[in-house]
């Protein structure tokens, strides 16, 4: 067990509740997605991948925007808690971007007939994935706490440019991937109401899960930081 001098924060105290809330929310969202919502007229039951695929993509966007905000906050204040938030969010973002790509590929095979297509949304998402893997590499190859945090913060600010590019790529260069169904420029979702409700429920469930994972990972990082600072004296 990692020894620590990190204080118990309100986020840490909220973690068990967030864990329970994410389990309940995920069960409800899965029931809505798999049982309650109707199959698609054209795709049939294959459409149900949509609920997890879109929720994963949303979480990836959210995570990388949080990395950006935490990076700005770190450079502004030099407080290590923001670096802990940035690394926690980046790791979760990379995980969910990877899952978005895998789930998208699984969905693409029955609908497009291929596992992968060189079209803008897929390429920009893969590029975003590679960029944030690089971000984690920079962090892991650096030993000094403050130096690592500063470099990662600079990179975290630069890399966020790709997030709107990924989202808008289907609007700018429409190819195989469908246009946005919810976050549209005219703010009018094109989904069936029950499908939209299921998608919103899944997105909320994933967001609660993100909050839970964040509290857990930030806590680990804070303990690591405390241990390094303690060893330094």
């Amino acid at each position: 067990m990692i020894s620590t001098t990190a204080k118990t924060t309100s986020a840490l105290r909220a973690r068990p509740f967030l864990g329970a809330a994410s389990v309940v929310a995920l069960f409800v969202a899965l029931w809505m997605a798999l049982v309650w919502s109707p199959p698609d007229a054209a795709m049939g039951n294959v459409v149900r991948i949509l609920y997890v695929h879109v929720a994963n993509a949303w979480l990836a966007y959210l995570a990388f925007v949080v990395v950006f905000l935490a990076s700005v906050a770190y450079l502004w204040t030099k407080r290590l808690v923001f670096d802990a938030i940035a690394v926690a969010s980046a790791e979760i973002g990379v995980l969910f971007t990877g899952l978005t790509l895998v789930l998208g590929s699984i969905w693409a095979e029955p609908t497009w007939g291929v596992w992968w297509s060189w079209e803008p949304r897929l390429i920009t998402t893969a590029v975003m994935f590679a960029m944030y893997v690089g971000y984690l590499l920079v962090r892991n190859l650096s030993d000094d706490l403050e130096r690592r945090a500063t470099r990662a913060a600079v990179l975290g600010i630069v890399l966020v440019v790709d997030v709107p590019i990924v989202h808008l790529s289907v609007t700018w260069m429409n190819a195989l991937h469908q246009l946005p169904s919810v976050l549209r420029p005219d703010l009018s979702p094109t989904l069936d109401p029950s499908m939209l409700a299921s998608l919103i429920a899944m997105t909320i469930a994933f967001t609660v899960l993100y909050a839970y994972l964040m509290t857990a990972r930030v806590d680990i990082e804070r303990r690591r930081q405390a241990r390094v600072l303690e060893a330094r004296g």
């Binding site: 390429i123 590029v127 590679a130 960029m131 893997v133 690089g134 590499l137 920079v138 190859l141 990179l155 630069v158 890399l159």
Partner: peptide, 11 residues
């Protein structure tokens, strides 16, 4: 590390 970071940014 340098090409890993630079190439995706330069796409």
């Amino acid at each position: 590390l340098v090409p890993i970071l630079a190439l995706p940014m330069l796409v």
